[in-house]
Amino acid sequence: MIDILFWALAVVSVASGVAVFVVDSMARATYALAVSFIAVGIMLVMVGLEYIGIITILMMVMEMAIMAVYMVMFMGMNPALMPMDMTHNKRWSAVLAMGTFVLLAAGALLIPWPARVGAPAVDLVASLGEAIMGPKMLAMLTISPVLFATIIAGLVIVNPRGRYDRWGDDLKHRPPNDPLRGGLGQ
């Protein structure tokens, strides 16, 4: 029963992944991808990764909801509102896809995989976390402020309306020049 459900979900995830390129509408393509992610999320729950599975569904549905907005917005001349083909550059994509598949499949088949040494840990999740985070905690602690600073710097650079736009060159303009009226008057 569980096996059947698992395989059904696997089929759903692949089929809706294919549907992303078959359907003729931006909205359908986006939400076909969301369905694929939901199926994968449930499969993750089924293999015992409850948190990761449910959070996958959460993040991906949220992301697709926002992505649909951007896909429609950035599509030139707005064909996104009309039926359109989701594929382009078909010949080269097919060549690339087949090539990648052959390469990876050949690698998987031809590599002399090592035999397993040792036994799996009792608590797989905990030991996985240890393996990933344990010795690399210092690197993580260094990287995270750098990443955070990068995000802040990026926002500062692209900010279209900084404090000088709002409060004037001498920062004395009151009330601030707010293109969106209301809110807190910022």
Partner: peptide
């Protein structure tokens, strides 16, 4: 185990 996250996930479904 993650009931609170479950509720949150269902709430995000409403976005879609």
């Amino acid at each position: 185990d993650v009931g609170v996250v479950w509720f949150n996930t269902m709430d995000v479904m409403i976005w879609a």
